[in-house]
């Protein structure tokens, strides 16, 4: 039982990271990014390229991955979404769908479609708490990464000038521009941060399962569930959302079998949409024209 709970907790940590990527982009850039799943996978494959294919030292792997992924995020804004500014969100969402299949194509061209095993910094091992509760070392790493990302994000948005300007631009881009804020750079930063967090989630998940585009992408899409429970624009709301989805998936799989894994999150999404479409912490969106 405790092992199951621990499993749910480590899974929730991954979901919290994925949910964060969804929410950040929806809130800061105003885009429901359907390429989140593909970006998780791309991030993990880039990491794998540095780590496994090139066998680089670990600090280079980490910094190289973060830099590449963040740059990819910035390019995404300048090349695609800057040109679409002013279009209805529907058009932007369709563009993210196109982006997702483009990333998938690029990935299968470069890395093929077979699942891979990533080079490990330390051998994977089982960690035992007390008498019977067990989890994996990489599960705990994922939990640590999630705590770190949320603490860093909280500090950044609350105390740093850039973070405050990002919140300002998220609330009212026109007023921000009139107040001298470089809104395009806020959007670049939004994409860069979302892709970075997505990559971290993808890597952590790949270490706990295996690296396949399909598997990691599917996790990324299920990560819409915790984001939706939180209300899509509330970073704080992602945490309870991730716990709910993590628990539902873990215990659902226990009761109904392995195939339930793929549907648990979508059932949660449907239930949330039916009962409370604005999510637990969502703002009522008031649009002024």
């Amino acid at each position: 039982m405790l092992t199951l709970l621990l499993g749910a907790l480590t899974l929730s940590a991954i979901y919290a990271l994925v949910g964060f990527a969804w929410v950040l982009l929806r809130r800061t850039n105003g885009i429901l990014n359907l390429a989140t799943g593909a970006q998780l996978a791309i991030g993990a494959f880039i990491f794998n390229q540095f780590a496994t294919s090139w066998q680089l030292p670990w600090p280079v792997v980490v910094l190289g991955t973060l830099a590449t992924v963040a740059a990819l995020g910035g390019v995404t804004h300048w090349v695609v979404f800057k040109k679409l500014s002013g279009q209805p969100e529907f058009a932007l969402v369709v563009a993210t769908l196109g982006l997702a299949s483009a990333l998938k194509g690029v990935s299968s061209l470069i890395w093929g479609t077979e699942a891979r095993v990533m080079r490990e910094p330390v051998p994977s091992q089982v960690v035992t708490f007390g008498d019977q509760a067990t989890t994996t070392l990489y599960g705990l790493c994922g939990l640590g990464a999630a705590v770190l990302v949320f603490a860093a994000a909280h500090t950044f948005f609350k105390f740093s000038t850039v973070g405050i300007r990002m919140r300002a631009a998220a609330e009212n881009p026109v007023l921000s521009a009139q107040g001298g804020i470089a809104v395009d750079w806020v959007y670049v930063l939004g994409w860069a941060m979302a892709l970075t967090v997505a990559a971290i989630a993808g890597i952590m998940y790949a270490y706990q399962t295996a690296l396949s585009f399909h598997g990691v992408e599917a996790l990324g899409m299920r990560g819409l569930a915790p984001a939706l429970i939180g209300g899509l624009t509330s970073v704080r709301g992602v945490i309870p959302g991730a716990l709910i989805v993590g628990l539902a998936e873990t215990f659902g799989t226990k009761v109904f079998g392995g195939s339930f894994q793929d549907v648990a999150a979508w059932i949660v999404i449907l239930v949330v949409l039916l009962i409370r479409p604005q999510g637990l912490f969502g703002d009522k969106q008031v649009q002024r024209v």
């Binding site: 000038t161 405050i164 300007r165 919140r167 300002a168 609330e171 009212n172 026109v174 007023l175 921000s176 521009a177 009139q178 107040g179 001298g180 804020i181 470089a182 809104v183 002024r288």
Partner: peptide, 30 residues
């Protein structure tokens, strides 16, 4: 609007003049 503001031509708009979700201090820091 940003280029104008940086040249010293600044508008206080009619509708939303402040960031409602930010504190007064954050409004100034932004």
């Amino acid at each position: 609007p940003r280029a104008m503001a940086r040249r010293g031509l600044v508008l206080v708009p009619e509708e939303a003049k402040v960031f409602a979700s930010l504190t007064v201090d954050e409004n100034l820091r932004a």
